[in-house]
Design a protein around this nucleic acid. Structure first.
Lengths: 225, 225
DNA sequence: AACCCATATATTGTTGACAATATTGAGTTT
DNA sequence: AAACTCAATATTGTCAACAATATATGGGTT
């Protein structure tokens, strides 16, 4: 390995994973001694890990009162998707000029792979969750803008993964999403940055609308019960 | 006070201030024991503060090798301004719909104040540094998007302030900037989100071009010497 | 029973010492 | 002189105990 992992790194990774998968529930209070014992380390490294997650907006901390897992309410999700739309749109525009042919071919390969999976499962849920993120992240990296890559890769995607892992909100039908992905890649291959940005923004906006509708439906069901 | 400040909070604030003002030079190695002694605390809180600054991209950390102040090179500044253009443009569009009349009046008051300062100093440098940031931040807050506010207010502005505090790169002539600010506020008052976004993006883009030209000039001077 | 206050408990904030790793420098070899 | 080795030093990573603060408990009052 390049450089050895510190205990705080390990704790941050495991905590993030636990939060994303829902192993640690939203709003749950995080007890330092309990977590430190569970991970087999002292409280020092654990606290540093918590501070890092705080920067990634996965937890919120109040002095002397403790750290809690963030709660992803409607408003926050809306804000997340709105920012994503702006940033990923920008990334897509840059990527159209910056990506090389090899990377675009890689994207096309990923798409073909997705198509196979969808057909194999008869257009069902499929590994969209992670595969889709790969697609988006590949484009983000293609922008060659380190700040953008850091913002979208390091901070916002954990929140997205957290959102997808829970509830059925992620159940976008994959076929239209795949078609949109295809169009985006076509625009990238044609080096048409403006079109690529437009398509990516519309793709994300559509995803949000789909999710938003599902949330409304869930709420109505809850109100009835 | 709402809740008492922890030592890590104090250290984070003082460190950020020292980095922004250049008291801690770019690329400088940050010695934990030395800093802890200077701030009159143990290494624990200081390390937590460093982890927070890491999330704000003010320092970079390599395990077992230490923490260093970030170096703001051309590439990084270009990326910062590109992201700012997208995010602040978006914030401006949202603010056009979300800000109330009181807030817009506040913006107009700020502008009048800036104009007075400029005239008093005969169109010289003026307190653009901080006053300008107030202007931008007021609009960002007007977007009502907490994620946007957090991204632009909590993380990127320290970097901007850091950039402005040093070198003469911030010596934009204030009069054209003020005129652009005026146009932006007019668009906000007219509730024209698209125009407001366009004007803000052009304003930031222009600022970057101005800075970029100045950097080139500095480099040429350096090459000659 | 509801409310308030004091005490007890639990949790976070902080410290100083110890362990592990990286850096430095002197001495040696080629 | 340049490069390598290995000890000496400095710095970071980690821990366990202590202090400060918040939370929970229980008894007493209205």
């Amino acid at each position: 390995m390049a450089h050895s992992e510190t205990l705080a790194d390990i704790a941050a990774y495991r905590l993030a994973q636990a939060i994303i998968t829902g192993d640690l529930a939203q709003g749950q209070k995080l007890n330092e001694v309990e977590l430190a014992e569970r991970y087999g380390m002292g409280r020092g490294p654990l606290r540093e890990a918590l501070r890092r997650l705080e920067g990634q907006r996965l937890v919120s901390h109040i002095p002397n009162a403790g750290t809690r897992v963030i709660v992803l309410d409607n408003k926050m999700l809306a804000e997340l998707y709105a920012v994503r739309e702006a940033l990923e749109g920008m990334a897509c525009r840059l990527a159209a000029h910056e990506m090389n042919d090899t990377e675009i071919a890689q994207l096309q390969g990923l798409l073909a792979q997705h198509e196979q999976q969808i057909e194999a499962q008869g257009g069902q849920v499929y590994a969209q969750s992670e595969g889709d993120l790969d697609f988006h992240y590949l484009i983000v990296r293609g922008s060659r803008n380190a700040l953008l890559i850091n913002l979208l890769g390091g901070e916002q995607y954990p929140l997205l993964r957290m959102c997808r892992y829970r509830s059925s909100r992620n159940a976008q039908r994959p076929r239209p999403a795949l078609a949109q992905h295809r169009h985006i890649v076509e625009a990238l291959a044609a080096r048409d940055g403006e079109l690529a940005e437009f398509l990516m923004r519309r793709h994300i906006h559509g995803a949000w609308q789909s999710i938003s509708a599902m949330i409304s439906a869930e709420n109505q069901v809850q109100e009835r019960s």
